[in-house]
Each structure stands twice: as C-alpha cells, then as structure tokens.
Design a protein around this nucleic acid. Sequence first.
DNA 1: TTGTATGCGTTATCAG
DNA 2: CTGATAACGCATACAA
Lengths: 340, 340
Amino acid sequence: MLNGRTPSVKDVAAAAGVSLGTVSNVMNRPAVVSARTRERVERAMSELGFVRNESARQLRAGTSRTLAYVMLDGSNPFFHDVAHGIELAAEDADLSLFICNSNSRADREETHLDRLLQQRVQGILITPVDPEAPHLRALTRRGVPLVIVDRRRADGSCCSVAVDDVHGGRVAVEHLAEQGHQRVAFIGGPDSLGQVRERLQGARAVWAELGRPADHLVYLPTAAMTVAEGRSAGERLAGLPARRRPTAAFCANDLLALGLLQQGIGAGLRVPEELAIVGFDDIEFAAAAAVPLTSVRQPRQELGRAAAQLVLDEATNPTHEHQQLFFTPELVARASSRAR
Amino acid sequence: MLNGRTPSVKDVAAAAGVSLGTVSNVMNRPAVVSARTRERVERAMSELGFVRNESARQLRAGTSRTLAYVMLDGSNPFFHDVAHGIELAAEDADLSLFICNSNSRADREETHLDRLLQQRVQGILITPVDPEAPHLRALTRRGVPLVIVDRRRADGSCCSVAVDDVHGGRVAVEHLAEQGHQRVAFIGGPDSLGQVRERLQGARAVWAELGRPADHLVYLPTAAMTVAEGRSAGERLAGLPARRRPTAAFCANDLLALGLLQQGIGAGLRVPEELAIVGFDDIEFAAAAAVPLTSVRQPRQELGRAAAQLVLDEATNPTHEHQQLFFTPELVARASSRAR
DNA sequence: TTGTATGCGTTATCAG
DNA sequence: CTGATAACGCATACAA
C-alpha cells in the first residue's frame, strides 16, 4: 500500500487502526486523545518513519513556521553573528530560519524577497542595500511583517533595530583623543551609507567639543567596507606628509581596521605606538588580530534577537506598533590603541 | 471578494476573465497560451500583486524547490564560503537554499535534519558532527539525497566532497622543511576528527621521507579548532625548552593558526623569523592577517558547488551512483612562512 | 473520545 | 488553445 511513497497520516491511521483525524489530534492536540490510543499511534508513526509534510500543514493551517533573514554581506562575520541571534530567538519560538545573502546587490535582494514571499514566511528581517528601496516598501504594503536590521528608515515606516552610530563615533574618537592623539583619521565609505555618515558625525562632534581643530580630523573615504579597502586607505595614509599625518585612525568597521592594521604592520609601523587603530562592530576577529583591535562593540546577537522579537510581535499581535530600537554601542579598548 | 486575503490563482482568473487552468498555464507552460490571453493574465497578476503559494505548489507537485546545508560551525568563515558555493549552484538550478548551523552539536544537527525532512527539501548537504551518526544513516535509508561535505564516510555509503587531507599535510610540512626548519610542530585536534588525523599522517609521511627524525615533528593536540585553542597551543609551544622548541608550526586550520600568530606576536616573537606558521583552509582572514598567513588552500566554493551538483544528481538521476569527490589542496605561501 | 467530511491553492489530466 | 475537475496531505468543525 505504501509502494515507495513516504507515509502520510492516512497510512499511520491505517497502521494504528484509527481514523485519520485521531492521528492529527495526536500531533496537534495530544491532550484530547486517550493515552492508549496515543501510544498506539505514536508507535505506528515511528515504525513507518512518518514525518509530517510541512507544506500540507502550512497550506491547511494558513501559517508558516519560518522566519527569514536577508543579510547584506556574507563575507562579514558581523552579519553571521546577527543571524545567530535571530536563530536563537526563532528557535525559542519554534520557528525555522531561512538565511539569504544579497551580497550588497539590490537585484539579488529582490530575488530573495520574491522567493520568501512565495514561501509565505511569517516575517522578514533584512539588512537592506537601501532601506528606502521600493521593493521593500512594497512588502510593508502587502502586510508582510518586516524589520530592518542595523539600518533604519528616516520616516519610521517599519520596525528597525540598530545601534546609535553617532554615539559610536563619539566614543571612538573621544578614546583616541584621551590617548593623546592630535591628528586622527576617519576611514570609511561610501558615504551613501547612513552609518558612515553618522559615525563620522559623532566623531566630528566630539572632536569639536574637545576644542580640536576640524582639519586635524582627516576623512579618508573608501569605496567599500572591506579589508582590501582598509589596506588601500592605509597606503593613502602613509602617503601623507609626516607632519600632517594622523597618528591614529578610526575605521567605520572592523574589516577596514584589519586591512589597515595589516598594511601598517607590513610597512613596518608599530601599532599602537606609531599608528593607533580603532574599529567598529567588534567581530571576533578583532580580538584575534595580531595586535588585538580596539573596537566599538555592537551587541551583535542582541541586535538579531531583538529584531526577531519585533517581527514576531508584528506577525502575531494585532495591536502592533512599529518601533525603532536603538542599542548603545560601547568601546572595547585593546592593544591597538592603548596608552603609548 | 478578496477581503484581506492574499490573492490566489482563482482571483487572478476572475480578474482576467479566464479560467483558473489558464492562469496556471501562464505560469507553468507559457508556450501553450496565446499571447493576448497571457498578457491579460499577467496584467491581472501584477495588479493584484499575486504571488504563487509555494506550499500549495509543492504539495501538488510533490517536489520542493529547496536544498539545505547544515554547517558545522558558523563562526568559521570556511563554512560560509562553502555555503556560498552551494548557493551559486542552487541558484543555477533555480532552487532556494536553507542554511542551518549545528554549532558542532549533534542534537542541534538532528533537530535541523528533522525540520528539513518536514520541509521535504530536495536534498541535504551537511558537514556532520559525526559522519557515521545513525540519524544520518537514517536519511539515506529514507532515500533523501545526501552529500557529506568536507568529511567522508569510510564505506562510501553516500556521496561526499572533500579534499585530500593527507596530501594537504604533506605539502605543508614539505614547505616548512624546504624553508630549513629542523623541528616542526603539528597543532590540531581533537584527533577524533578524521581530518586532523589525516593531515598529521601526511605531515609525518613526508617528514619521514625527508629522512627527518620522527620526534622532531611534535604533535600539540588541541581540544577544538578555534582561535582560542591556537593561542593556548602557542603558550605550550613557548613553554618547551629552547633547544627542543620547533621553529615552525603547521596548524590543522586557519583559526588555530591565527590564534597562534596572535599569541606569538604578543609574546614578542618575530614571524616568520623565530616562528614560521602554516595554516589550513585559506580563509579570507588568512591573507588579511597582520603577517599574511601561509595556508593550504581548500577550494571552498568549488567544494560547495560540486556537492550541490552531486545532490542534484542524486535527486533527479535515477541511475545515480554515489561518488566520493576529492580535490587536491595546494599551498599558498605567504609571509608567515617565507624564507628567513 | 473518536470518526467523517471539507477545503486550503496549486498543478495536471482530459474533454471541449 | 481553453475550461472543468480531481488529487496532493493535513487540520478542523462537526457528528457520532
């Protein structure tokens, strides 16, 4: 009767000598079925190797048991830590997590979102290429629970979870100033990224408050937030005339900082004596660098956890209201910037 | 008629003034429907914002459009690169990829596999905690297409894709010997990992062939393949009496090597002059290290791609036969080991 | 407490 | 080329 097919509730019912509805009850409302029957059904299930068909369940129940996270850059460990936080929350809610990677490409992002819509995921978490993209707004219009992670939308038209980047910029530069640096470089870009702008803004603000001359905070723009760009920024930094050359650099993320560190050490610079470095994110590799990297720590897992909770609220709570959550990042001082 | 519901084929059919079957044809066999009708249907779709319900499709078609990869350790970028390779292949086949992370825990792995079975994924790729685990063998028994990635099963009872670890061990140690090192440490563990054993085996074989005394190749076992364990191995290394202390270390993966590098530099050692280091995997951070890391390169994306192709073959080709694919890793020499 | 019947949205078959 | 209809496997309302 089962010729090669994977067993269905019907087969289980037949094997256990009960009706199909009873089998379903065993799975979904175990309290309502007698212990003896339940046991018989369960034995039949395991004997047949029954595995419930999630598609059928979902079609009938009208609700899926999966969340999705579309991450921006799979080569940056930061996003994997965020994803891990989401997964922990998903697990608690007994949900599966679909992880996609847009690789910073809007078209890939759109393709992924399309598929996720087809899967009827319960909610979507995303670190978008562009928080204002029309295909994102379309999601909200469709009523798909959506949370933007590590970015935000100016108009608050959906939930988001991020850190206070301005504050992050402040503490980084404040720390470098405290260490006695008179000239500091800010490395990051492209400045179409809100984060880059805000971190720079915080840096400049605190620099001004400390009464330092504005042109002693040098902005070295990069084309991306990668190790390679960090190296290239390091070369530009080295090319500056000695008297105007910053003795410290604040990088908009850790990959840049790692690249800068590598370039500097390769060029024979002593870190932090000749070049102090502060990164941002505090990915694991920051602490593992040859000279452990000072970094502005984002609560990576917490970010993910909180985002997942927001999306679940939006998915289940009819009185849900959009929230913009902010975490306050804090400086983790390590050898790459410590007292000279 | 649509009160809040997400539109179905039926709604599209009504809106376009055609029958439901025609709408289905537009999606699945566009050639069979007239251009005019097709256009009308497509307009109706986009006006209503129709998105096909994948659960229903799957239930009816009996076949899902997703693959899954269960990775061993989300904190090791190596596995993300493998995942990326899988995703590229999945994309080519117009499939979605479910990524899970067992975090080296057998129970998490089993939970994930369970869920994937419920989803009726087309095939499962996995870097397992234990390739021989019964819950894995159960998959094969159920007829679920399965490919083991970066590990293998001795009996060839399923497909696998890996590199020749013995060869990897050979080239690493051969390289260090060529650089003039008389004493070399092998760092890795636990030795329950087949990879660790095989890399060590290759190392020992070539060492013997070169006529070096066996006890000049020192095995420093670790409890895991992490940065922290690399650091701790470095401390043990430093603790050896100077005359017996190896001047070079071959680490069973790059995380260990990075930890060792950090510990060594922190302790004031010059790399490679006083301590040469070779890693394994060649993750991106290897090249980005302060002293760029020599490493035995695994074709990470290729591994993933090939695995995906195998699983697809098993899923679709009735005459499929299990294959054990082997890639030959090659040494990428960088500053951490270069001529002194 | 258990059984029966219905429908979820889609695809495929087959008769117009 | 189009349209009606029967599954797919499960969950639920309702009947027994």
